[in-house]
């Protein structure tokens, strides 16, 4: 569970002494097994918030607690360990390693956990099978379609059995049909595995399907909709 209060993030701007206030006091609680979509105009702090939630960056001020641990005060190693164990990422551009096969790409998420090679291979194969790519284990990125690549990315995010899935425009590079497939998969996993899913999206069709919708504008977040279950499209 995330407990966030007064969260700020200030970047150095391009000009001298110029500051960019990406987040200006975000207050929100994200309970376990929540599915939250964050919408907002480009450059208003969506991705910054996602990075802070995933421990990829550190806030300038405020409090960001995950399961009671203050992430802002964690050391680099602790934060890296937290990322490795608890957060799964899904990127808009898939971010697969081009030289590795689908199975090897999924394995990369298990490497920092010290999982043995044999177990890595087994778990990666299972994760890929779970997302419908059991026949594509040995395929390289270039041999997969966009939807398949995103499924690999989802398998990579899920294979370590994280508590939270953080997705940045997960369907941004996909056509409408594939988008529905992928989102359907995310919904299923969310429901089956009891994950917390936080996604940034511009897609209004997706935002209609999530149980909880937030909007971020000028670095400030407001909850737009609350509901307990996902809406059918």
């Amino acid at each position: 569970m995330y407990e966030i209060s007064g969260l700020t993030k200030i970047y150095d701007g391009k000009g001298k002494n110029e500051k960019v206030h990406a987040l200006q006091g975000v207050d929100v609680v994200i309970p376990d097994n929540d599915m939250l979509a964050i919408q907002g105009p480009t450059g208003h702090g969506k991705s910054t918030l996602l990075q802070l939630l995933g421990g990829l960056d550190r806030p300038t001020g405020g409090s960001l607690k995950f399961d009671g641990q203050e992430m802002a005060k964690m050391g680099e190693m602790s934060l890296t360990k937290l990322r490795a164990q608890n957060f799964g990422y899904i990127f808009q551009g898939f971010n697969l390693i081009p030289t590795l096969t689908a199975q090897e790409n999924v394995e990369t998420a298990l490497v920092p956990l010290g999982v043995s090679k044999v177990e890595r291979r087994e778990r990666a194969a299972k994760a890929l099978t779970d997302v419908g790519l059991g026949e594509r284990l040995g395929h390289l990125q270039t041999e997969l379609s966009g939807g398949q690549q995103q499924r690999v990315a989802i398998a990579r995010a899920l294979v370590k059995e994280p508590k939270v899935i953080l997705a940045d425009e997960p369907t941004g590079n996909l056509d409408e049909e594939t988008r529905d497939d992928i989102f359907g998969l995310l919904e299923k996993l969310w429901a089956d595995l009891g994950l917390t899913v936080i996604m940034v999206t511009h897609d209004s069709a997706l935002s209609k399907r999530v149980p909880r919708l937030a909007q971020i504008k000028n670095g400030k977040l407001t909850i737009k909709r609350e509901s307990k279950t996902a809406n059918a499209a």
């Binding site: 360990k81 490795a84 164990q85 990127f91 551009g93 990369t108 998420a109 920092p112």
Partner: peptide, 16 residues
């Protein structure tokens, strides 16, 4: 950058 950053995001330490 993107590739190595992704690995870091997945929990790879800087040392690795």
């Amino acid at each position: 950058t993107r590739e190595l950053g992704t690995l870091k995001a997945l929990g790879w330490t800087s040392r690795r």
